[in-house]
Design a protein around this nucleic acid. Structure first.
Length: 584
RNA sequence: GGACUGGUAGUUCAGCUGGUUAGAAUGCCGCCCUGUCACGGCGGAGGUCGCGAGUUCGAGUCUCGUCCAGUCCGCCA
């Protein structure tokens, strides 16, 4: 090693030791005859001192160092006369006796500091410089801890890590596939896996009754702050289990991670049915760090001659405690908020229940004092509270009220950083009706088993069938989800039938799985967690990009290596591909 | 596919109802400074106002188009 210590470890007990450090020049401060240099590596920062009186030659060498020069310094650890309590190494400094420049550096385009002056785009272009910043290093270290502890826990539970292929087969269900041309099979393509779903089920058939993998998945869909085209899952599957076994095993994983990585003890995770989540929070991934649940006031508001209410399928409200004194301006802001196209409400009704007991609403024209009192009671309002109500089509109203609730949560500071409220959401519907194509789609995936008591409904009312499917939600973020799978060939056939697959389609796309199921498939089920999201939640971030070493931007581009990019004509030819714009 | 926000010095931003030589901070360079640690002081360099049209006597500023970035909706079994 070129060094004897790191820049983060020297303390008072090292005073007088001869040491050698290597690192990057964070910053230098020149005081005339004295030069201070902050030397940084992965572990911290240590101050080097050069004294004009002691060694003029060394001092003038030190003055030539620029930011981010890579330097080796040999010298003696000394107690500082002026200590810096803000730094872990702030009690000591290095009296440098020998200085070697290991490499020079151009001035970086932004400052390598926690509060950098660099914008997102620039930092992504120079990601290797961005990653020198403490905040990013911390995030990647956290990610490493999570991955390490996940493996620890699962290994202790007898899970084994088995790799599955990346070059697989494209299927039309679900997300859009990334596709890879096959040179050896002209005109044919592999697809990159959206998840190892079918392979892990085949591993169950093979008898590996506890499998896991921390694995890359690929989906060619539009991106978000919490979505990347390639992302990492903790993918797990178990045989001979009930839903209860899976929830317990992976609640155990979550608790283990909370304990080992964040040093937090979390009690039993609450559970909520999908139906309740929709009724109380208007979405399937509620943030339960705060209440403000929905109250259904449909029956109380209909039939009083107020057209908006009379035409509505659902009228529901939320109660903001102590907000009765919200100004007209604040209420207008909230109205504008819910009317944004992304939220989609047509308007916002409110009832102020003033501290003195008086009631004032935006719909006084249509409702008597008794009517309003009834609504307030339904919402559990006390004097001083504000009730906000949305009306309309059920799904739209739920979604908009859900957004409004979250907005109020933000405004009132109810989503506290550092507080974690995990939740299991269970009993998801098996199928989802699509208006456009006039058919059912699997809400989770086509191998999800229906609840046994609902199987009869597959023939009569498929939309009502509930699945043995579950999601883990933390603070309103969907961290993972899974299901008990179908292991019975007939039921799987039935499922494909309901999904509108012909026998041929099913055979063509999933024949390998159906065939496997004919050779003694064990009952099995599993779950997959979004590892990037989990890192983000634990790290208190709001973008998974900050927890991925080399992420892609909003349009799926890597601005550092500038990909995707065009390929040479010869490459295309070799792959038997002609571009559409060459056909013109 | 759609909505919104932004693009001005290396960087982060300001720049009003269109009007003289486009500013600040920071970074960079030079000089001074022996206990700094966001050191300090003095001086200096640094601009295709994303790009292209248009309106106008005159455009960083207004209009249209376009590109890029970000947030969101659709999408993401």
């Amino acid at each position: 090693m070129l060094r004897t210590h790191t820049c983060g470890e020297l303390r008072m007990n090292h005073v007088n030791s001869e040491i050698t450090l290597c690192g990057w020049v964070q910053r230098s401060r020149e005081m005339g005859g004295l030069t201070f240099i902050d030397l940084r590596d992965r572990y911290g920062i240590t101050q080097l001192v050069f004294n004009q009186d002691v060694s003029p030659a060394l001092c003038s060498e030190a003055r030539k160092l620029g930011r981010e020069f890579v330097v080796k310094a040999r010298g003696k650890v000394a107690e500082r006369s002026n200590k810096n309590p803000k730094m872990p190494t702030g009690d000591v400094e290095i009296l440098v006796e020998e200085l070697t420049v290991l490499n020079i550096s151009k001035t970086p385009p932004f400052t390598i500091e926690d509060n950098t002056d660099g914008g997102e785009e620039l930092r992504m272009k120079y990601r290797y410089l961005d990653l020198r910043r403490q905040v990013n290093k911390k995030n990647l270290e956290l990610r490493h801890r999570l991955s390490f502890e996940t493996r620890n826990y699962l290994d202790a539970q007898n899970f084994i890590d088995i790799e599955t292929p990346y070059l697989i087969k494209s299927t039309p269900e679900g997300a859009r596939d990334f596709v890879v041309p096959s040179r050896m099979n002209p005109g044919q393509f592999y697809a990159l896996p959206q998840s190892p779903q079918t392979f892990k089920q085949l591993l169950m058939v093979a008898g590996f009754d506890r499998y896991y993998q921390i694995v890359r998945c690929f989906r060619d869909e539009d991106l978000r702050a919490d979505r990347q085209p390639e992302f990492t899952q903790i993918d797990c599957e178990m045989s001979f289990v009930t839903q209860e076994d899976i929830l317990n095993t992976f609640e155990g994983l979550a608790r283990h991670l909370f304990r080992k990585v964040l040093n937090l003890e979390t009690g039993d995770f609450p559970r909520m049915s999908y139906t309740d989540a929709m009724m109380l929070y208007g979405c399937d991934k509620p943030d339960i760090r705060f209440g403000m649940t929905f109250s259904d006031v449909t029956l109380l508001m209909k039939g009083k001659g107020f057209k908006v209410a009379d035409d509505a399928e659902l009228i529901a409200g939320i109660r903001a405690d102590g907000c009765a004194e919200y100004s007209r301006k604040q209420l207008d802001e909230l109205t504008d908020y819910v009317k944004r196209p992304q939220v989609g409400a047509t308007g916002l009704l409110y009832i102020r229940y003033a501290a003195d007991g008086s009631i004032k609403s935006s719909v006084d024209k249509f409702y008597t004092a008794d009517d309003l009192a009834g609504i307030l009671k339904q919402c559990g309002a006390a004097p001083g509270d504000l009730v906000m109500i949305l009306a309309g089509q059920t799904e739209k109203t739920q979604k908009a009220l859900c957004e409004l609730r979250l907005e109020m949560g933000r405004r009132l500071g109810l989503m506290k950083a550092g507080e974690f409220k995990p939740l299991w959401v269970t009993d998801f519907p098996l199928l989802e009706w699509d208006e456009e194509t006039k058919r059912f789609y699997a809400k989770h995936h086509p191998f999800t088993s229906p609840k046994p008591e609902d199987i009869a409904l597959l023939d009569t009312d498929p939309g009502l069938v509930r699945a043995n499917a579950y999601d883990l939600v933390i603070n309103g973020v969907e961290i993972g989800g899974g299901s008990i799978r179908i292991h019975n060939k007939e039921l799987q056939h039935k499922m494909f039938q309901v999904l509108g697959f012909t026998e041929e389609d099913a055979q063509n796309q999933f024949g390998f799985l159906m065939n496997a199921f004919e050779y003694g498939a064990p009952p099995h089920g599993g779950i997959a967690f979004g590892f990037d999201r989990w890192s983000m939640i634990f790290g208190g971030g709001d973008s998974i990009r900050d927890f991925i070493a080399f992420p892609k931007n909003n349009s799926g581009r890597d601005v550092m290596i500038d990909s995707p990019s065009e390929i040479k004509e010869e490459q295309l030819k070799e792959l038997n591909i002609r571009l559409a714009n060459q056909l013109k």
